[in-house]
């Protein structure tokens, strides 16, 4: 609840700006490699890609997943595919067979990332 109150409500950002969930600009697929989850984030339209590059930084993603990811977050760019690839280290409670999580393989961290709010010009 605390998290929500901090966020600016959708549609009412700084003057002349509006906030939308990343879901409206991108799609994603995620998976695992040991205790590291990867989230591939893909722009729904080519013109959205620069917005993703600018706003969906490794630091922002690390803040977004605070409490869920123990290690660092790395970001790689694939401009040819309009995609960013994030590695979330220490995201899976040990990963694979060790993990006690429902999502031991990080399969739905994809849509968890799409909850992030993006600022757009009005």
């Amino acid at each position: 609840m605390r998290r929500r109150s901090k966020a600016v409500k959708r549609g009412r950002g700084r003057s002349g700006r509006r906030r939308v969930p990343l879901l409206e600009l991108a799609h994603a697929r995620s998976g695992d490699k040991g205790d590291t989850a990867n989230v591939g984030l893909i722009a729904l339209k080519p013109e959205y890609y620069p917005i993703l590059v600018k706003q969906v930084t490794a630091a922002r993603v690390a803040r977004h997943f605070k409490g869920m990811v123990k290690g660092p977050v790395e970001r790689f760019e694939l401009p040819n595919l309009g995609a960013l690839n994030f590695l979330l280290h220490g995201a899976l409670d040990g990963g694979g067979t060790i993990s006690l999580k429902t999502d031991a393989q990080g399969k739905v961290l994809s849509t968890a990332l799409l909850r992030l709010e993006i600022e757009l010009p009005r």
Partner: peptide, 16 residues
């Protein structure tokens, strides 16, 4: 293209 791209980034590390 969108669906194939999703699979390309699946379980991806350093894409280069």
């Amino acid at each position: 293209v969108a669906g194939v791209t999703e699979q390309l980034v699946y379980e991806m590390g350093n894409p280069a």
